[in-house]
């Protein structure tokens, strides 16, 4: 029953919400409901008023009335704690499918007031609470699970608070305009598969992945930062790059067509593994997907380009 209404509410709110890069929480998009504790307080107040009537006890009446007044005022206070909060969608670094994407949400305020014990998250059960003093900002990483490659849009964000009196729950669902690139889940292909890798263009059939240290050579622009021998640099011996045995000769061209016999997603996962591994082993590699060809290269940028192509492959 409860879930039914929750689903209905979420459907309704999804229709209402327009995703935008920045949201200011205000009257229009904040909801306020009495909490369970608010109902408990109401019950106590009724009890007090009945007792007051029965005993004709005016001090008991005063207690009941002051509690009613505070109850209504606490609505304002709870609302004010959330109103004026500004949510800004920050970036989200790409992740591999199966990992948790974490969207950065930066929070600030248009009011000169602080916002206390506010929770931000994708659901009521997964709220990250924080205090925000007046005039300060706060950054929250909102985690979101990933299952498949491609663009992951930021789901609804819940902003909720019970501060200061717990009698009311104030909350706001927002859609922030942010997305996260999800790479395919890297899966290590077995040996039989590896045997077909790079056919045609690769000039070496060695299996990638064995990191044998070969020796130093002078630094050339374009060398990966990882190759630089920082120990030598620290000893003021100048910049040198370390060389690995395969890196000189191995170059790869991974093709989706090589794995045409298996499921597309599995093939992409294998390719993802191969690309990442090649980069780690400082090999030169390229990628050929249906309609896309990335020439051989190396480096973080190259890797990112390859992974993005894999992630967004139709």
């Amino acid at each position: 029953m409860k879930n039914y209404w929750r689903r209905k509410f979420h459907l309704w709110i999804d229709q209402r919400l327009v995703s935008s890069h920045e949201v200011v929480l205000k009257q229009k998009n904040i909801y306020i409901l009495p909490s369970v504790y608010g109902f408990l307080m109401a019950a106590i107040v009724i009890l007090v008023l009945i007792a007051a009537t029965n005993y004709q006890n005016n001090l008991a009446f005063l207690t009941g009335f002051v509690l009613i007044s505070i109850g209504f005022l606490s609505m304002f206070y709870t609302f004010r704690n959330l109103a004026g909060l500004v949510l800004n969608a920050g970036g989200c670094s790409p992740v591999f499918a199966g990992e948790t994407a974490s969207f950065i949400v930066s929070l600030s305020s248009v009011k000169p007031l602080g916002h206390y014990s506010v929770g931000v998250g994708t659901s009521k059960a997964a709220l990250h609470y924080f205090d925000m003093e007046p005039g300060t900002e706060y950054r929250v990483e909102v985690p979101q699970a990933t299952t498949k490659r491609g663009w992951l849009t930021f789901s609804r964000v819940l902003c909720a608070s019970r501060f200061p009196f717990g009698t009311f729950r104030v909350f706001s669902w927002q859609k922030l305009d942010a997305r996260c690139l999800v790479y395919p889940r890297p899966i290590q292909p077995d040996d039989a598969v590896l045997a077909r890798v790079g056919q045609g263009e690769g000039d070496s059939r060695e299996r990638p992945g064995v990191e044998d240290y070969w020796g130093h050579r002078g630094y050339r622009p374009g060398d990966s930062k990882r190759q630089i021998d920082w120990k030598a640099y620290a000893k003021e011996q100048g910049l040198h790059s370390r060389e690995f045995v395969e890196s000189a000769g191995s170059s790869w061209m991974f093709r989706l067509d090589d794995f045409a016999h298996v499921d597309r997603e599995l093939a992409l996962s294998w390719l993802c593994y191969l690309v990442v591994h090649a980069e780690r082993s400082n090999q030169v590699y390229g990628l050929e997907l249906t309609g896309i060809r990335i020439d051989q290269g190396r480096g973080d940028e190259h890797l990112a380009r390859c992974l993005q192509a894999l992630a967004l492959h139709p």
Binding site: F96, G121, H128, V140, V142, P186
Partner: peptide, 19 residues
């Protein structure tokens, strides 16, 4: 597969409602 993470990811410390 841990070695393939593009960056070090630290999960937010969400362990239920601290309140």
């Amino acid at each position: 597969m841990r070695g393939y993470q593009a960056r070090d990811f630290q999960a937010s410390p969400v362990t239920g409602d601290p309140l």
